[in-house]
Design a protein around this nucleic acid. Structure first.
Lengths: 173, 173
DNA sequence: CATCGTAGTGAGTAATCACTTACAAATGTA
DNA sequence: TACATTTGTAAGTGATTACTCACTACGATG
């Protein structure tokens, strides 16, 4: 990746995340990135290609996080690590996750395969702990993670007190 | 409201919710509504005015739901009713809420005033129950509500099993 | 019947959209 | 040095955007 290609990539991520993909024109990306508009299409074919490049790069990183949880053998720590996910989002990853959560509402959830693996490993953990309805518990944990992630990404305050509350509900910690 | 004005209103809500506001052109709204494009601007001034009309109408209805919870005196039932909110969304309200949740990520949360009242009444309920950190508990409940609402609105499955799980965490039911 | 305000239309507007193309500059490679 | 490939630009393209305007149809009121 050349310097200018990185510029396009970064400013597109920033603008896509804050204004939305549809409200971000290629001419604006070029202007902010300090680049001619044509260069966007040279490197990324079209606007959709630019979006996909951003998405796949970010999702590869995210995939590692999720696998780090699934390899955990102890069911309690596996659940705890899952619930800790939204509290460990790095500031430099905020734009990416805001983009992902935005896209959920229009283009359908990004990548369903890896997520169903993650959910299954959560259900397995609850099963080991003899919960009444493991699959429902897994879905609930996912919803809680999404809800807290939304709070973190939008309100921009790091909500450590929430972690204590939520871990308490699952008798962890 | 005339018949055609209602047509514009309803199809705009549908298109805004499914495709996003920015990806929905006034010409498309007019075409789907079976109306001349100029009529949109006669009745709603501009595209933003159309969006605001949709938002204020829906939020007035929503306001009633939230107040029904805040007037509840018993803290346990108040919390229970709050957690039940996402499970009681009517199918005809889906489009509106999908629009609201979409807009959270670009234009900032829609109406903060009423929501802080709601949060305060939740914190008060947890305070009555002698929870360690009532305000954090209130924020957590809000996050859980948001997370489950997302699940309901996107996956389109009515997740009754989740309700049992979440009420169990708060020793309700 | 006459008049008036609202509902509704359809053809326009300039601006912006994603994208293309022809061409120059830089870079690598023999 | 010579040549080929990649990087980059500027000026376009037709289509679409939100919005305007001149106009007609119509129901109510006097």
């Amino acid at each position: 990746m050349t310097k200018k290609q990185q510029n396009i990539f970064n400013t597109a991520l920033e603008l896509f995340a804050t204004d939305g993909v549809d409200a971000t024109s290629t001419s604006k990306i070029a202007k902010v990135a300090g680049v001619s508009e044509g260069l966007i299409f040279r490197h990324f074919t079209n606007k959709e290609g630019l979006l996909q490049a951003i998405l796949t790069e970010g999702l590869n990183k995210a995939h590692e996080y999720f696998q780090l949880i699934q390899v955990e053998i102890d069911p309690k720590t596996r659940i705890r690590k899952a619930l800790e996910l939204p509290f460990n989002i790095l500031p430099e990853e905020y734009n990416f996750w805001r983009l992902v959560y935005t896209l959920k509402w229009q283009r359908g959830s990004v990548q369903t395969e890896e997520m169903s693996d993650f959910r299954a490993s959560l259900a397995d953990a609850f099963d080991q702990l003899n919960y009444e309805n493991p699959s429902a518990e897994a879905r609930l944990v996912e919803s809680i993670i999404d809800g807290i992630a939304t709070e973190v990404l939008l309100k921009d305050v790091h909500p450590k007190p929430l972690l204590k509350c939520v871990l308490d509900k699952y008798k962890l910690k």
